[in-house]
Amino acid sequence: MIEIKDLNKKFGKTEVLKNISLTIESGKVTAIVGPNGSGKTTLIKSVLGLVKQTAGEILVDGESTNGNFNYRNKIGYMPQTAKYPDNLTANELLSLVKDLRANDDIHSKKIIEPLNIKGELEKPFKNLSGGTKQKVSVLISFAFNPQIYFLDEPTAGLDPISSSYFKDLVAIEKENKKTIVLTSHIMGEIQELADEIVFLLEGEIKFKGTINSLLDHKKETKLERAIAELMSGEKL
């Protein structure tokens, strides 16, 4: 479980996150949606400790993230763009991450086959395509059986086969009572995967609830339309 209390982040004078309080429960897929620049990635990066908060507190399973790094043993993160050292191979990177993490790599063998990257693992990253790097990113974030997932636009760049396999993985991990947070601009994907929606606009949470409650409230059947209405700034 992740608890965010009065989180505030400023980049210079720009306030990117404005007093965000949010609880993300385990066993659910929570989608963070919002227009570009609304603070989705900054919110995720704050929990990961990549972005240092200006004020507020973040607790991961009751443990404060501030000045702590061991809690990241529990987290699997897929960044928006995957870029790795040119001359290392995926296998080397995987063993580097394994060296750093407390938990063992128990999933990678199962994931490599369906992602169709077996032949790519010994090649240096500079010879891999963007999509393949994204698949390696899937591999690294899922391999160590984390309790919490942060998936930042995970399917952008994946081919349809890998993308649908990826969604299966997310569904399995949800069954396993993991905490899953994802961002995406593909509403169909969110409707398919997510239970909860957190809608961010200009650094503030404008809506939090289940997909159905949002659809009911907006009297829409399509999530895309409901979200579009939220984006146009209408008050709930």
């Binding site: 990961l48 400790g49 990549l50 790094f69 061991n70 809690y71 990241r72 043993n73 987290i75 993160y77 960044p79 763009t81 995957a82 870029k83 790795y84 050292p85 991450v97 750093l100 993490r101 407390a102 690294i140 942060f150």
Partner: peptide
């Protein structure tokens, strides 16, 4: 190395 640093900082280090 910027993206690599991002990735590494999401690990326990």
């Amino acid at each position: 190395s910027r993206e690599f640093i991002e990735m590494m900082l999401s690990q326990p280090i």
